[in-house]
């Protein structure tokens, strides 16, 4: 006899946590949610706010697909609770540019074919914007290293490097 439940026999099942109001500022807009503390920022975006541009690739901070910018800094939205991000300025891929008005990184990703399936792409682009905000990466080697928090299983890395490098260079030119 073997089981994997976190509940011991005879132990009562704890009730789900109560929900409360959580206020988030996303892409410049105030959004109000009725959620319990256990909702991650990633799930808040995808499941409650229909902002599905931010992707879930592992839910454990091991792939970078969920990268968003919080106060201009890139983070993994799967490893923070929505309730922890009240008062913060959150920027998702939807806040960077639109199909009609692409952000320079989005245009560079298209020009350099820096993606295939596209699933890691919003995270790559948000990460690249974070990299540019940080201002630490200039050479190819530095960009490679500081873009290494975003896995691309299709293997578009050389094109991602080219796209990011182009925008980094344009910023510093």
């Amino acid at each position: 006899m073997l089981h994997q439940s976190t509940k011991a026999p005879g132990e009562a099942v704890a009730a789900p946590p109560p929900t409360g109001t959580v206020r988030l500022t996303i892409n410049g807009q105030q959004r109000e949610l009725q959620i319990a503390p256990w909702t991650t920022l990633l799930d808040a975006l995808r499941e409650y706010l229909d902002l599905t541009g931010t992707k879930k690739g592992c839910d454990h901070g091991q792939c970078g697909a969920c990268t968003v910018l919080v106060n201009g800094k890139r983070i993994n939205s799967c490893l923070t609770l929505a309730v922890m991000q009240e008062d913060a300025e959150i920027t998702t891929i939807e806040g960077l540019g639109t199909q009609e008005n692409l952000h320079p990184l989005q245009q560079a990703f298209i020009d350099h074919d820096a993606f295939q399936c596209g699933y890691c792409t919003p995270g790559q682009i948000c990460s690249a914007q974070g990299l540019i905000n940080e201002g630490k990466a200039h050479t190819e080697a530095e960009i490679r290293e500081l873009m290494s928090g975003n896995i691309c299983r299709c293997g578009a890395y050389t094109n991602i490097l080219a796209a990011v490098k182009e925008v980094v260079d344009a910023k510093t030119a």
Partner: peptide, 9 residues
Amino acid sequence: GASPQLRNM
């Protein structure tokens, strides 16, 4: 260690 995103958090 980790990644830029994780180090930011």
